[in-house]
Simulated assay, not measured.
Amino acid sequence: MGKQTTEMLKGVLEGIILAVLARRPAYGYEITAWLREQGFADIVEGTVYALLVRIEQRGLVDVEKVPSEKGPPRKVYSLNAQGRDQLTEFWRTWSFLVNRLEQLREGED
């Protein structure tokens, strides 16, 4: 990814993580691995974990500690009602921005 892509991604990564969690509960490494599979090769675990902490502090997810075969229990995150509301708002904002950017690109007023 180029620098511009990385910078733009930083602005929407929280929404992307909420969208991933809307599909199913997951832990940090699972989210990172899935994002990489989707082409976000430069995503690092530390960035995802920092966002998960912030999302948890804001009350957008429920967290369950699940035993791990290797090491300490994993924190599995699932989107709660407040998180779903936030995700709905993210998609509303995303749609607004996409529409305005398309108009700008096409030279409309």
Results as ranks from 00 to 15, higher is better:
Met1Gly: 10
Met1His: 14
Met1Gln: 14
Gly2Ser: 15
Gly2Tyr: 09
Gly2Met: 15
Lys3Asp: 07
Lys3Pro: 03
Lys3Thr: 10
Thr5His: 14
Thr6Cys: 04
Glu7Lys: 15
Glu7Asp: 09
Glu7Pro: 06
Met8Lys: 13
Leu9Lys: 09
Leu9Phe: 06
Val12Tyr: 03
Val12Asn: 02
Glu14Met: 10
Gly15Gln: 01
Gly15Lys: 01
Ile16Val: 15
Ile17Asn: 02
Leu18Phe: 01
Leu18Asp: 00
Ala19Leu: 09
Ala19Gln: 10
Val20Gly: 02
Val20Trp: 00
Leu21Gly: 00
Leu21Trp: 01
Arg24Asn: 08
Pro25Gln: 06
Ala26Ser: 11
Ala26Gln: 07
Tyr27Asn: 09
Glu30Leu: 07
Ile31Asn: 04
Ala33Pro: 01
Ala33Asp: 10
Trp34Glu: 15
Arg36Leu: 04
Arg36Pro: 02
Arg36Lys: 14
Glu37Phe: 04
Gln38Cys: 14
Ala41His: 14
Ala41Arg: 13
Ala41Val: 13
Asp42His: 12
Asp42Arg: 13
Asp42Gly: 11
Asp42Ser: 13
Ile43Ser: 00
Ile43Leu: 04
Val44Ile: 12
Val44Tyr: 05
Glu45Met: 11
Gly46Glu: 15
Gly46Asn: 11
Val48Pro: 00
Val48Arg: 02
Tyr49Phe: 12
Tyr49Met: 12
Ala50Cys: 08
Leu51Glu: 02
Leu52Gly: 00
Val53Leu: 03
Val53Ser: 09
Arg54Tyr: 00
Arg54Trp: 00
Glu56Ile: 07
Gly59Met: 02
Val63Asn: 02
Glu64Cys: 09
Lys65Pro: 03
Lys65Trp: 14
Val66Thr: 14
Pro67Val: 10
Pro67Thr: 10
Glu69Met: 13
Glu69Ala: 12
Pro72Ala: 11
Pro72Met: 04
Pro73Glu: 05
Arg74Tyr: 13
Arg74Ile: 03
Arg74Thr: 05
Lys75Tyr: 08
Lys75Gln: 12
Val76Pro: 02
Tyr77Ser: 03
Tyr77His: 06
Ser78Leu: 09
Leu79Pro: 01
Leu79Gly: 03
Leu79Met: 07
Asn80Gly: 12
Ala81Thr: 11
Gln82Glu: 15
Gln82Asn: 14
Gln82Val: 15
Gln82Asp: 14
Arg84Val: 09
Asp85Gln: 14
Asp85Glu: 15
Asp85Cys: 10
Gln86Asp: 10
Gln86Ser: 15
Leu87Trp: 08
Leu87Ile: 11
Glu89Leu: 12
Glu89Gly: 09
Phe90Glu: 01
Trp91Gln: 05
Trp91Ile: 10
Trp91Thr: 11
Arg92Pro: 04
Arg92Gln: 08
Thr93Cys: 05
Trp94Asn: 10
Ser95Met: 10
Phe96Ser: 06
Phe96Thr: 07
Phe96Glu: 05
Val98Thr: 06
Asn99Val: 13
Arg100Lys: 09
Leu101Gln: 05
Leu101Val: 08
Glu102Thr: 12
Glu102Ala: 08
Gln103Met: 11
Gln103Glu: 14
Arg105Cys: 04
Glu106Ser: 07
Glu106Tyr: 02
Glu106Val: 04
Glu106Met: 04
Gly107Met: 06
Gly107Leu: 07
Asp109Leu: 12
